[in-house]
């Protein structure tokens, strides 16, 4: 049995009762799990696609997501009608919880607006990223999680911006993290709106820090006083003025 077939069997067995992974497909390699999941879901949610190797993984606005065989690349096809804010927060929390569950110091991780999983004491370092696309009636929640990489495995230009679960003391493999991820995604999607917002806020790493955001093509830098993912990002500008940026249309600018 190939490695992919063995993992597919393993995941199907463990996730048999988990709606978000009612169907599981594990591929040896593919260009992008997002495109594979879109094609295979054919408008029907309840599909998890995982690739052992992803050759053209992408992030926000077509940015490349470097993938190695030590990382997890998976996409869940979810019901298309889930609101964007709910999808974004739930996916972020699922990734965070799946990562946190596999390391000795789970509190060392947090969420960087809106759903990057980063180290709390080094928020430039990303452990996991989420890309969500809504097309053809389903919402495709794609996850890239750095699982087994050593520091030297990351490309030089990513070294200062990436971290893996192994580097944080995890002994988990891709299969373990995949199982926990599916369970955490199911749980996060079942939270009430209020719980989702509250739990998200408890993991926000930007609160009380200086950050730069982009809204409507313009950049705003200042001190983050509060983030309500269902409302606004409240900033205190250098001149003391308060500015609320609408959550839905504001993205974080990374240095």
């Amino acid at each position: 049995m190939s490695e992919a077939a063995a993992l597919e069997h393993h995941l199907r067995t463990l996730l048999a009762s988990v709606e978000v992974a009612r169907r599981v497909v594990v591929l040896e390699a593919c260009a992008s799990t997002q495109d594979e999941a879109a094609a295979r879901a054919a408008g029907q949610p309840g599909l998890m696609v995982l690739a052992l190797r992803q050759t053209a993984g992408r992030g926000r606005l077509g940015r490349a997501w470097a993938h190695s065989e030590q990382g997890l690349a998976a996409t869940f096809a979810l019901p298309g009608e889930i609101a964007s804010a709910r999808l974004s927060m739930a996916a972020g929390l699922a990734a965070l919880h799946a990562c946190a569950a596999s390391i000795p110091e789970p509190a060392g991780l947090g969420l960087r607006w809106p759903n990057d999983v980063v180290q709390r004491d080094a928020i430039a370092r990303k452990v996991a990223g989420v890309l969500i696309e809504r097309r053809d009636g389903v919402a495709l929640a794609g996850f890239g999680i750095n699982v087994r990489q050593a520091a030297a495995d990351f490309p030089t230009d990513l070294a200062a911006r990436a971290c893996s679960l192994a580097m944080l003391g995890s002994a988990s493999g891709v299969a373990d993290v995949a199982v926990v991820l599916a369970l955490c995604l199911r749980d996060a999607l079942a939270y009430s709106d209020e719980t989702l917002r509250r739990v998200w806020q408890s993991h926000d790493v930007l609160l009380g820090r200086d950050a730069t955001f982009e809204h409507h093509g313009a950049r705003v830098s200042g001190h983050v006083e509060a983030i309500d993912p269902t409302g606004a990002i409240r900033m205190r500008l250098p001149d003391g003025e308060k500015r609320d940026l609408p959550a839905e249309t504001t993205s974080l600018v990374l240095d």
Partner: peptide
């Protein structure tokens, strides 16, 4: 259309 990093086709 992007809303909270969800890209809607």
């Amino acid at each position: 259309i992007e809303a909270m990093k969800v890209f809607n086709e």
